[in-house]
Amino acid sequence: MTARRIPQGQAGSGKWADLSRRVASTLVLLAIGVLLAVAQGPWLRLGMAVISAITFWELAAMTGWRNPARHVTLFGRSRPIALAAIAGLSQAVALTGLPLAWMALAVPILLGLPGAARRDRATYALFGIAILIVAFGLVGFRENYGLNFVLWLMGVIIISDTAGYFFGRMLGGPKFWPALSPKKTWSGTVAGWIGSCLFGAILWMAGQGDAALIWVSPLVCFAGQMGDLAESWLKRRAGKKDSSNLIPGHGGFMDRFDAVTGAVLAAMLIGFLTRLPVVN
Protein backbone atom coordinates (compact mmCIF):
# COMPACT_ATOMS: atom_id res chain seq x y z
CA MET A 1 0.00 0.00 0.00
CA THR A 2 1.52 3.30 -1.06
CA ALA A 3 1.43 6.05 1.49
CA ARG A 4 -0.25 9.27 0.38
CA ARG A 5 2.17 12.16 0.01
CA ILE A 6 1.37 14.79 2.57
CA PRO A 7 1.49 18.29 1.09
CA GLN A 8 4.30 20.47 2.30
CA GLY A 9 3.29 22.39 5.37
CA GLN A 10 0.85 19.71 6.59
CA ALA A 11 3.41 17.15 7.67
CA GLY A 12 4.50 19.42 10.47
CA SER A 13 4.64 23.07 11.29
CA GLY A 14 7.26 25.75 11.46
CA LYS A 15 10.95 25.07 11.33
CA TRP A 16 10.67 21.37 12.27
CA ALA A 17 8.28 20.46 9.43
CA ASP A 18 10.84 18.34 7.55
CA LEU A 19 12.19 16.43 10.55
CA SER A 20 10.75 13.18 9.19
CA ARG A 21 12.86 13.58 6.04
CA ARG A 22 15.99 13.84 8.17
CA VAL A 23 15.01 10.70 10.02
CA ALA A 24 14.48 8.95 6.67
CA SER A 25 17.96 10.06 5.53
CA THR A 26 19.53 8.67 8.69
CA LEU A 27 17.70 5.35 8.32
CA VAL A 28 18.88 4.98 4.73
CA LEU A 29 22.48 5.70 5.77
CA LEU A 30 22.20 3.19 8.59
CA ALA A 31 20.83 0.64 6.13
CA ILE A 32 23.83 1.21 3.86
CA GLY A 33 26.11 0.79 6.86
CA VAL A 34 24.42 -2.47 7.79
CA LEU A 35 24.69 -3.68 4.19
CA LEU A 36 28.40 -2.95 4.15
CA ALA A 37 28.79 -4.55 7.58
CA VAL A 38 27.12 -7.87 6.85
CA ALA A 39 27.73 -8.25 3.12
CA GLN A 40 31.01 -9.48 1.76
CA GLY A 41 32.34 -10.64 -1.56
CA PRO A 42 29.69 -11.10 -4.26
CA TRP A 43 26.83 -9.97 -1.98
CA LEU A 44 28.53 -6.66 -1.31
CA ARG A 45 29.13 -6.16 -5.01
CA LEU A 46 25.55 -7.07 -5.81
CA GLY A 47 24.30 -4.51 -3.28
CA MET A 48 26.40 -1.74 -4.81
CA ALA A 49 25.26 -2.74 -8.30
CA VAL A 50 21.63 -2.44 -7.19
CA ILE A 51 22.32 0.97 -5.63
CA SER A 52 23.92 2.09 -8.90
CA ALA A 53 20.88 0.92 -10.86
CA ILE A 54 18.39 2.69 -8.58
CA THR A 55 20.22 6.01 -8.59
CA PHE A 56 20.76 5.85 -12.36
CA TRP A 57 17.04 5.31 -12.84
CA GLU A 58 16.37 8.51 -10.91
CA LEU A 59 19.12 10.41 -12.72
CA ALA A 60 17.78 9.36 -16.11
CA ALA A 61 14.31 10.58 -15.19
CA MET A 62 15.72 14.00 -14.27
CA THR A 63 17.84 14.51 -17.38
CA GLY A 64 15.42 14.06 -20.25
CA TRP A 65 14.81 10.32 -20.23
CA ARG A 66 11.40 10.93 -18.65
CA ASN A 67 10.18 11.94 -22.13
CA PRO A 68 8.52 8.77 -23.56
CA ALA A 69 8.94 10.03 -27.11
CA ARG A 70 12.71 10.29 -26.88
CA HIS A 71 14.39 7.82 -29.19
CA VAL A 72 17.78 6.18 -28.63
CA THR A 73 19.22 4.13 -31.46
CA LEU A 74 20.55 1.26 -29.34
CA PHE A 75 17.46 0.99 -27.14
CA GLY A 76 14.62 2.05 -29.42
CA ARG A 77 11.90 3.82 -27.44
CA SER A 78 13.61 3.40 -24.14
CA ARG A 79 12.74 4.15 -20.55
CA PRO A 80 14.93 5.00 -17.57
CA ILE A 81 14.52 1.41 -16.36
CA ALA A 82 16.53 0.15 -19.34
CA LEU A 83 19.41 2.46 -18.56
CA ALA A 84 19.20 1.51 -14.89
CA ALA A 85 19.62 -2.16 -15.75
CA ILE A 86 22.65 -1.36 -17.89
CA ALA A 87 24.18 0.74 -15.10
CA GLY A 88 23.68 -2.05 -12.57
CA LEU A 89 25.18 -4.68 -14.86
CA SER A 90 28.11 -2.41 -15.73
CA GLN A 91 28.83 -1.82 -12.05
CA ALA A 92 28.67 -5.56 -11.38
CA VAL A 93 31.21 -6.19 -14.14
CA ALA A 94 33.49 -3.41 -12.91
CA LEU A 95 33.45 -4.87 -9.40
CA THR A 96 34.63 -8.30 -10.54
CA GLY A 97 38.19 -7.07 -10.12
CA LEU A 98 39.26 -8.47 -13.46
CA PRO A 99 41.90 -6.54 -15.42
CA LEU A 100 40.42 -3.41 -17.00
CA ALA A 101 36.96 -4.39 -15.71
CA TRP A 102 36.59 -0.89 -14.24
CA MET A 103 36.24 0.40 -17.79
CA ALA A 104 32.72 -1.04 -17.79
CA LEU A 105 31.71 2.01 -15.74
CA ALA A 106 31.87 4.05 -18.94
CA VAL A 107 29.20 1.95 -20.67
CA PRO A 108 26.04 3.52 -19.19
CA ILE A 109 27.53 6.99 -19.66
CA LEU A 110 28.34 6.48 -23.33
CA LEU A 111 25.17 4.57 -24.19
CA GLY A 112 22.89 6.85 -22.23
CA LEU A 113 24.28 10.19 -23.31
CA PRO A 114 22.28 10.43 -26.57
CA GLY A 115 19.06 9.81 -24.66
CA ALA A 116 19.50 12.73 -22.29
CA ALA A 117 17.96 16.07 -23.14
CA ARG A 118 20.46 18.15 -25.08
CA ARG A 119 20.81 20.76 -22.34
CA ASP A 120 21.30 18.04 -19.72
CA ARG A 121 23.92 15.86 -21.38
CA ALA A 122 26.87 17.29 -19.47
CA THR A 123 24.83 17.11 -16.27
CA TYR A 124 23.90 13.50 -16.97
CA ALA A 125 27.53 12.56 -17.62
CA LEU A 126 28.92 14.27 -14.50
CA PHE A 127 26.29 12.94 -12.12
CA GLY A 128 26.39 9.51 -13.74
CA ILE A 129 30.15 9.26 -13.36
CA ALA A 130 29.85 10.33 -9.71
CA ILE A 131 27.19 7.70 -8.97
CA LEU A 132 29.22 4.87 -10.47
CA ILE A 133 32.53 5.90 -8.95
CA VAL A 134 31.04 6.26 -5.46
CA ALA A 135 29.47 2.79 -5.46
CA PHE A 136 32.72 1.38 -6.82
CA GLY A 137 34.72 3.33 -4.23
CA LEU A 138 32.60 2.18 -1.29
CA VAL A 139 33.46 -1.43 -2.10
CA GLY A 140 37.14 -0.49 -2.29
CA PHE A 141 36.99 1.29 1.06
CA ARG A 142 35.20 -1.65 2.69
CA GLU A 143 37.67 -4.22 1.44
CA ASN A 144 40.92 -2.25 1.62
CA TYR A 145 40.37 0.01 4.63
CA GLY A 146 37.90 -2.05 6.63
CA LEU A 147 34.39 -1.73 7.98
CA ASN A 148 35.31 0.84 10.65
CA PHE A 149 36.55 3.23 7.98
CA VAL A 150 33.22 3.06 6.15
CA LEU A 151 31.30 3.46 9.41
CA TRP A 152 33.38 6.56 10.14
CA LEU A 153 32.38 8.01 6.76
CA MET A 154 28.71 7.30 7.44
CA GLY A 155 29.09 8.69 10.96
CA VAL A 156 30.48 11.98 9.67
CA ILE A 157 27.55 12.35 7.27
CA ILE A 158 24.94 11.54 9.92
CA ILE A 159 26.50 13.89 12.48
CA SER A 160 26.81 16.66 9.89
CA ASP A 161 23.20 16.27 8.82
CA THR A 162 21.87 16.04 12.38
CA ALA A 163 23.92 18.90 13.80
CA GLY A 164 23.23 21.05 10.76
CA TYR A 165 19.51 20.45 10.97
CA PHE A 166 18.98 21.11 14.67
CA PHE A 167 21.42 23.98 15.13
CA GLY A 168 20.33 25.55 11.87
CA ARG A 169 16.70 25.50 12.99
CA MET A 170 17.48 26.71 16.50
CA LEU A 171 19.98 29.45 15.64
CA GLY A 172 18.75 30.47 12.21
CA GLY A 173 20.64 33.33 10.62
CA PRO A 174 21.88 33.96 7.08
CA LYS A 175 21.24 31.34 4.43
CA PHE A 176 24.20 29.38 3.13
CA TRP A 177 23.09 29.19 -0.51
CA PRO A 178 19.44 30.24 -0.77
CA ALA A 179 19.25 29.81 -4.54
CA LEU A 180 19.83 26.07 -4.13
CA SER A 181 18.67 25.30 -0.60
CA PRO A 182 16.43 27.95 0.97
CA LYS A 183 16.48 26.27 4.40
CA LYS A 184 20.21 25.61 4.77
CA THR A 185 21.83 28.23 7.03
CA TRP A 186 25.40 29.19 7.79
CA SER A 187 24.83 28.27 11.44
CA GLY A 188 23.74 24.77 10.53
CA THR A 189 26.53 24.35 7.99
CA VAL A 190 29.23 25.38 10.47
CA ALA A 191 27.62 23.21 13.15
CA GLY A 192 28.14 20.26 10.83
CA TRP A 193 31.83 21.11 10.48
CA ILE A 194 32.28 21.43 14.22
CA GLY A 195 30.33 18.27 14.96
CA SER A 196 32.37 16.21 12.49
CA CYS A 197 35.62 17.65 13.82
CA LEU A 198 34.61 16.71 17.37
CA PHE A 199 33.66 13.25 16.13
CA GLY A 200 37.12 12.79 14.65
CA ALA A 201 38.77 14.11 17.82
CA ILE A 202 36.76 11.72 20.02
CA LEU A 203 37.76 8.75 17.87
CA TRP A 204 41.40 9.81 18.07
CA MET A 205 41.34 10.32 21.85
CA ALA A 206 39.61 6.97 22.28
CA GLY A 207 42.40 5.27 20.36
CA GLN A 208 40.09 4.39 17.47
CA GLY A 209 42.05 6.30 14.84
CA ASP A 210 44.92 8.66 14.21
CA ALA A 211 45.03 12.44 14.56
CA ALA A 212 44.31 12.96 10.85
CA LEU A 213 40.65 12.27 11.65
CA ILE A 214 40.44 15.72 13.26
CA TRP A 215 41.03 17.59 10.00
CA VAL A 216 39.82 15.03 7.47
CA SER A 217 36.39 14.65 9.10
CA PRO A 218 35.30 18.28 8.53
CA LEU A 219 36.60 18.14 4.94
CA VAL A 220 34.53 15.04 4.28
CA CYS A 221 31.60 16.76 6.02
CA PHE A 222 31.88 19.80 3.77
CA ALA A 223 32.04 17.59 0.67
CA GLY A 224 28.89 15.84 1.82
CA GLN A 225 27.15 19.19 2.20
CA MET A 226 28.21 20.10 -1.33
CA GLY A 227 26.82 16.79 -2.57
CA ASP A 228 23.51 17.73 -0.96
CA LEU A 229 23.53 21.11 -2.70
CA ALA A 230 24.51 19.58 -6.04
CA GLU A 231 21.51 17.26 -5.93
CA SER A 232 19.28 20.19 -4.94
CA TRP A 233 20.54 22.03 -8.03
CA LEU A 234 19.77 19.01 -10.20
CA LYS A 235 16.21 18.78 -8.90
CA ARG A 236 15.60 22.48 -9.45
CA ARG A 237 16.96 22.20 -12.97
CA ALA A 238 14.61 19.28 -13.62
CA GLY A 239 11.68 21.05 -12.01
CA LYS A 240 11.17 18.29 -9.45
CA LYS A 241 10.77 18.40 -5.70
CA ASP A 242 12.18 14.89 -5.20
CA SER A 243 14.39 12.62 -7.27
CA SER A 244 11.58 10.01 -7.24
CA ASN A 245 8.87 8.63 -4.96
CA LEU A 246 10.65 5.39 -4.05
CA ILE A 247 10.40 6.31 -0.36
CA PRO A 248 6.72 7.26 -0.03
CA GLY A 249 6.41 10.73 1.42
CA HIS A 250 10.17 11.19 1.61
CA GLY A 251 11.43 11.38 -1.96
CA GLY A 252 13.91 9.18 -3.73
CA PHE A 253 17.15 7.38 -3.15
CA MET A 254 19.30 10.17 -4.56
CA ASP A 255 17.73 12.48 -1.99
CA ARG A 256 19.13 10.26 0.75
CA PHE A 257 22.40 9.36 -1.01
CA ASP A 258 23.54 12.84 -2.09
CA ALA A 259 25.75 13.56 0.92
CA VAL A 260 27.31 10.09 0.69
CA THR A 261 28.30 10.85 -2.89
CA GLY A 262 30.13 14.04 -1.95
CA ALA A 263 31.79 12.49 1.09
CA VAL A 264 33.04 9.38 -0.70
CA LEU A 265 34.38 11.40 -3.64
CA ALA A 266 36.25 13.65 -1.19
CA ALA A 267 37.71 10.66 0.65
CA MET A 268 38.85 9.16 -2.64
CA LEU A 269 40.49 12.45 -3.65
CA ILE A 270 42.21 12.80 -0.27
CA GLY A 271 43.46 9.23 -0.57
CA PHE A 272 44.86 10.04 -4.01
CA LEU A 273 46.64 13.19 -2.82
CA THR A 274 47.82 12.03 0.59
CA ARG A 275 47.28 9.34 3.21
CA LEU A 276 43.77 8.66 4.47
CA PRO A 277 43.31 8.45 8.23
CA VAL A 278 43.47 5.11 10.00
CA VAL A 279 40.23 4.07 11.71
CA ASN A 280 40.58 1.15 14.10
Rank of each mutant, 00 (worst) to 15 (best):
Pro68Asn: 13
Ser243Trp: 15
Val134Ile: 06
Arg121Trp: 07
Tyr124Ala: 02
Pro178Trp: 05
Asp120Met: 13
Gly115Gln: 12
Val23His: 10
Val93Gly: 00
Ala263Leu: 13
Thr96Leu: 03
Met154Val: 10
Trp43Thr: 11
Val190Leu: 15
Pro218Phe: 01
Glu231Trp: 03
Leu29Met: 03
Pro68Phe: 03
Ala87Glu: 04
Asp242Glu: 01
Thr73Leu: 15
Gly12Lys: 12
Leu83Tyr: 13
Pro174Asn: 09
Ile81Leu: 08
Ala238Asn: 01
Glu231His: 13
Ala87Ile: 06
Arg275Asp: 15
Met154Cys: 11
Leu46Gly: 08
Ala101Val: 09
Lys241Trp: 06
Pro114His: 14
Asn245His: 15
Ile54Gly: 00
Lys184Glu: 07
Leu111Asp: 11
Leu27Gln: 05
Arg169Met: 11
Ser232Val: 04
Gly41Asp: 06
Leu276Ala: 09
Leu153His: 05
Arg256Lys: 15
Gly262Asp: 12
Leu35Trp: 04
Val38Ile: 10
Ala11His: 15
Leu213Val: 01
Tyr124His: 09
Gly14Ile: 12
Arg275Cys: 04
Met205Ser: 01
Ala84Thr: 05
Leu29Gln: 04
Ala106Lys: 03
Ala24His: 03
Leu100Phe: 14
Leu234Lys: 11
Ser217Arg: 10
Leu36Phe: 06
Trp102Asn: 04
Val93Cys: 09
Val34Leu: 14
Asn144Ile: 04
Ala49Phe: 04
Gly140Ser: 13
Leu29Glu: 10
Asp242Gln: 03
Pro42His: 07
Leu171Arg: 14
Gly251Arg: 05
Asp228Trp: 06
Arg70Gly: 11
Gly188Phe: 13
Gly88Pro: 03
Ala49Trp: 06
Trp16Thr: 02
Ser160Asp: 01
Asp210Lys: 14
Lys183Asn: 14
Pro182Met: 08
Pro277Lys: 15
Arg5Leu: 06
Phe199Ser: 10
Ile81Cys: 09
Arg5Gly: 09
Gly262Leu: 13
Leu234Glu: 03
Leu74Asp: 02
Val216Gly: 05
Ser244Asp: 11
His71Lys: 09
Met205Ile: 00
Ile247His: 01
Ile54Arg: 06
Ala17Tyr: 08
Arg79Tyr: 12
Lys183His: 13
Ile214Gly: 05
Ala238Lys: 08
Ile202Cys: 08
Asp242His: 08
Asn148His: 14
Leu83Glu: 08
Ile247Val: 02
Leu105Asp: 07
Gly115Ala: 01
Tyr124Val: 00
Val279Asp: 08
Pro178Ser: 15
Ala53Met: 00
Leu151Phe: 03
Gly200Gln: 01
Leu229Ser: 01
Ile32Lys: 02
Trp215Thr: 12
Ser232Gln: 00
Ser217Phe: 14
Gly155Arg: 07
Gly112Met: 05
Leu126Gly: 07
Arg4Asp: 13
Leu132Tyr: 04
Ile214Lys: 00
Gly146Phe: 10
Gly168Lys: 11
Gly209His: 11
Tyr145Lys: 14
Phe75Ser: 00
